[in-house]
Design a protein around this nucleic acid. Structure first.
Length: 482
DNA sequence: TGAAATGTTGGGGCG
DNA sequence: ACGCCCCAACATTTC
C-alpha cells in the first residue's frame, strides 16, 4: 500500500485530470486534498467574486468525488507544512498535482517539490491547465514570444493536444476518512449575501462547465465569428470561469470542438471553429507571457510606459466602477459585471479603453477592480487584457487606438438591447439616441422619462476632448523618454 | 481586436 | 461641349 495525495488547486474536475488519473492507476489509496492558503498568492489571492465561485466549485468537486467513492479533504495553509503533515498522517510517499503558471505559484510549488524530495516524498506535477507548456514554445531565436500570431502559428505546429483522460471509474479510498475542515469554515461566501446575481447567472462546477460547453457547441459555435463581438446576442461560450477553475480543461474543449467538426462532416475546421480555438490560443498566450515576464501583473512590459502621466482620480474611478460614467455602453458593462461577475469581451475592451484613455486612470486600478469582481478573474488573462488596452503590453494595441464608446456601441449593440437590459432607466429612448442620450432633443428625453443629471448622469468627460488629452499625455511620455 | 483627418476620385448639376 | 463646383464614397495617412 502506497497512499498518494492529490493536491487540487485550479483543476476542480474529475474528468481529464492528469494528477488524479495517475494517482488512481495503481489502486493505492488516494487522498484528494484542497488547501486554502490565500496568503501564498502574492497580491492576487482569490477575491470576492472568485471566492463565491470557489466555494460552490469545491462543493461540486466534493460531491463528484463522493460519487466515485472518495471525498475531498479541506485544510488550511501554509501549503508545505500542511502537505508534509498530511502525508505523515496518512503515510503517503507521493504527492501529485497539476501545474499552475502564476509567478507566486511557480515559486511556491518548486520550493515545495524540493522540500518534499528532501523528506523522501515523491512530488509529481502534470500539465492540465494548458494545451502547450509555456517553456516548450519558443521563437527560432529561443526567446519567448511577444506577438500573438507567430506564437499561435508555432503552437499549431506542435503535436496536436493529447486526447482528454477519462474520469476514473472509482477512486481507491482509504479505510478511514481523514479529518477535514468544513467548507463553510473557509468563509468564502460574503457575510452579506450580494452573490445572488452570480448564483443565478451560472451553474458552477464541472457539470455546469460540461453543460455550457455543449450548449455552445450545439447552438453557438457555427455563427461564432459573426456573433462573438455582439454583447446583445448569446454568441460566446461563457466558459471563462469554468476554465479558470479547471472545471473543464482546454484539452476537453479542443477535443469537443474537433469532434463536432468531424460530425458535421468537415474535412478541416470551419472559420468559426478555428476562430474559437484561436481564443483558447489567447489564453495560452497570456499564460506564456505571465510565465516568462513575471513582473507584468504590476509593471508594464514596455518599460517606457512606467513614465506615463496618469491622473488617477479616485472619484472618476468610482464612477466607472459603479456604472455611472454617462456613457451607456460603459455603464451597461460595468453593471453586468457587478451583477453577474462577468462581462462580454467586446464590452471589456470598451470599458477598459474608457478608464485608461478617456479617464487616464492607471490600468492597474482597472485590473484590480476586475480581479475583485470577475468570476473568471485570472492573473494571466487579466494582465494581458489590461496591458493590451493600455498599449503597454506584448502585441498591444498602439496607444493611439482609442475606442469611441458611442460608435462602438452603435456597431456592436445596434438595436440597443444590451444597453436597455443593464441601463433600464434609458430603456424608453429610441435606438438612435440610446447610445448618446446627451445629444437627444429635450422632447425626446422627456417622452422617454429621462432627466439627464438626475435619472442618468451626464457624460463625465467629453470623448473628443478626452481622446485628445490622452494623445497629448502619450506624446508627453514619449518626449520625457529622450 | 480604431478613429479622425486628410486626400482622391468620379458622377451630377449648373452656367 | 466644357469647366467648375459640390459632395459622397472610398483610400490613405496620422494620431
Amino acid at each position: 500500500m502506497s497512499p498518494v495525495l492529490v493536491w487540487f488547486r485550479q483543476d476542480l474536475r474529475v474528468a481529464d485530470n492528469p494528477a488524479l488519473h495517475a494517482a488512481c492507476e495503481a489502486g493505492d489509496p488516494v487522498y484528494p486534498l484542497f488547501i486554502w492558503a490565500p496568503e501564498e498568492e502574492d497580491a492576487w489571492a482569490p477575491a470576492s467574486a472568485s471566492r463565491v465561485w470557489l466555494h460552490h466549485s469545491l462543493a461540486a468537486l466534493d460531491e463528484a468525488l463522493r460519487g466515485l467513492g472518495s471525498a475531498l479533504t479541506i485544510r488550511t495553509g501554509p501549503s508545505l507544512a500542511t502537505i508534509a503533515a498530511f502525508a505523515c498522517e496518512v503515510g503517503a510517499q507521493r504527492v501529485y498535482w497539476n501545474r499552475r503558471y502564476e509567478p507566486a505559484a511557480v515559486e511556491r510549488d518548486s520550493a515545495l517539490k524540493r522540500a518534499l524530495a528532501d523528506t523522501g516524498i515523491e512530488a509529481r506535477s502534470f500539465k492540465a491547465a494548458l494545451l502547450f507548456e509555456p517553456h516548450e514554445v519558443r521563437t527560432n531565436a529561443g526567446e519567448p514570444f511577444r506577438v500573438f500570431t507567430p506564437f499561435w502559428r508555432q503552437c499549431l505546429k506542435q503535436p496536436e493536444p493529447e486526447a482528454p483522460l477519462p474520469t476514473p471509474r472509482r477512486i481507491p479510498a482509504p479505510a478511514r476518512r481523514p479529518a477535514s475542515r468544513g467548507l463553510a469554515e473557509l468563509k468564502l461566501l460574503p457575510r452579506v449575501d450580494w452573490a445572488g446575481g452570480i448564483r443565478h447567472s451560472w451553474r458552477i462546477g464541472e457539470a455546469g462547465a460540461r453543460e455550457a460547453l455543449h450548449r455552445f457547441l450545439d447552438e453557438g459555435i457555427d455563427g461564432y465569428t459573426q456573433r462573438r463581438d455582439r454583447p446583445d446576442l448569446d454568441g460566446v461560450s461563457r466558459l471563462s470561469p469554468h476554465l479558470h477553475f479547471g472545471e473543464v480543461s482546454p484539452r476537453q474543449v479542443w477535443a469537443a470542438v474537433c469532434a463536432r467538426e468531424r460530425e458535421a462532416g468537415r474535412m478541416s475546421l470551419s472559420a468559426s471553429a478555428a476562430g474559437y480555438l484561436r481564443q483558447l490560443g489567447w489564453r495560452e498566450f497570456a499564460h506564456h507571457l505571465l510565465f516568462h515576464f513575471r513582473a507584468t501583473p504590476a509593471r508594464p512590459l514596455r518599460e517606457e510606459y512606467a513614465a506615463f502621466p496618469w491622473l488617477d482620480d479616485a472619484y472618476q474611478l468610482e464612477c466607472w466602477q459603479r456604472g455611472r460614467t454617462g456613457y451607456p455602453i460603459v455603464d451597461a458593462g460595468m453593471r453586468e459585471l457587478w451583477t453577474t461577475g462577468w462581462m462580454h469581451n467586446r464590452v471589456r475592451m470598451i470599458v477598459a479603453s474608457f478608464l485608461v484613455k478617456d479617464l487616464l486612470v492607471h490600468w492597474r486600478h482597472g485590473a484590480r477592480w476586475f480581479w475583485d469582481t470577475l468570476v473568471d478573474a485570472d492573473l494571466a488573462n487579466n494582465t494581458l487584457g489590461w496591458q493590451w488596452t493600455a498599449g503597454c503590453g506584448a502585441d498591444a494595441a498602439p496607444y493611439f487606438r482609442i475606442f469611441n464608446p458611442v460608435s462602438q456601441a452603435e456597431r456592436f449593440d445596434p438595436h440597443g438591447s444590451y444597453v436597455r437590459k443593464w441601463v433600464p432607466e434609458l430603456a424608453r429612448l429610441p435606438d438612435r439616441h440610446l447610445h448618446s442620450p446627451w445629444r437627444a432633443p429635450d422632447d425626446v428625453l422627456a417622452a422617454a422619462g429621462v432627466r439627464l443629471g438626475a435619472d442618468y448622469p451626464l457624460p463625465m468627460v467629453e470623448h473628443d476632448l478626452a481622446r485628445q488629452r490622452a494623445l497629448d499625455a502619450w506624446q508627453r511620455m514619449r518626449s520625457t523618454r529622450r
